[in-house]
Simulated assay, not measured.
Amino acid sequence: MKIALLSGSTVGSKTRIALETTALKIQEQFPDYEVNFLDLKELDIEFSDGRNYLDYTGDTGLLVSTLMTADVIFIGSPTFQASIPGSLKNVFDLLPPKAFERKIISLIMTAGSPKHYLVAESQLKPILTYMKAITVPSYVFIEELDFSNQIIVSDDVLMRLDKLVEDTFILAESYQLIWKKQEEQYGF
């Protein structure tokens, strides 16, 4: 199974820390899965200009091809102005409308306060639904106080990340079985 982790901001460190922690949990539990980490802070991503995603090259081409070939995607996003960052929205704009069809997507949100708990529900999930994603119903929300010295110090958050990884792969493996059974009915 191909897994992509996308840190959706060009600034800050908490979202990346959360995704790195998640990547370690995935590699511990599923060592045979191919895991790709994409950090927008480290990539030179072009602005979407409406062309086909296959026409992008360089880091932009790497980003879109990794997302399009992944079976499971973990998206990490900080909360800026009660919404997702423009850099993450640009990623979605680079992709075709059905880019996430048959992909399982999990969300990890970071924010400075609990006031932005519903940004994933009101801002991110509608975009992913439009793009045909199958989103894991629960997501992990991490506040400023859950970090100290560049690590997650909240046992509750670490347990919720464990549960998110577990739920994600149960859902992904279940859907793959369903899709395989469905395709076998066609007899091609």
Results as ranks from 00 to 15, higher is better:
P85S: 12
L67D: 05
E34D: 14
G187H: 11
A120H: 02
W179S: 12
Y53D: 09
I178A: 13
D39I: 12
S65H: 11
T110F: 11
L164D: 10
Q150C: 02
P126E: 12
Q182R: 12
E173C: 06
Q27M: 15
N52P: 01
Q176C: 10
T79D: 02
N90S: 07
S7K: 04
V11E: 12
P97L: 13
Y175C: 11
L5P: 00
L158D: 02
V72W: 01
M1C: 12
S122D: 10
M68N: 03
L43C: 07
F30D: 02
P137F: 09
I73E: 03
S106M: 10
A120R: 04
S48W: 02
S65M: 04
S83C: 13
M68K: 09
T79V: 14
G112E: 06
P78M: 05
L43Q: 02
I104Y: 05
I134Q: 03
T60L: 00
L95T: 07
K125D: 09
M131N: 01
S122M: 08
Q185S: 12
S48P: 01
I3Q: 04
R51Y: 03
S174M: 13
S138K: 14
E143K: 07
R51N: 05
N149M: 11
P78T: 09
I26M: 05
N52H: 10
L95H: 03
D146F: 01
L88H: 07
P114Q: 10
G76L: 06
I73H: 00
T66I: 00
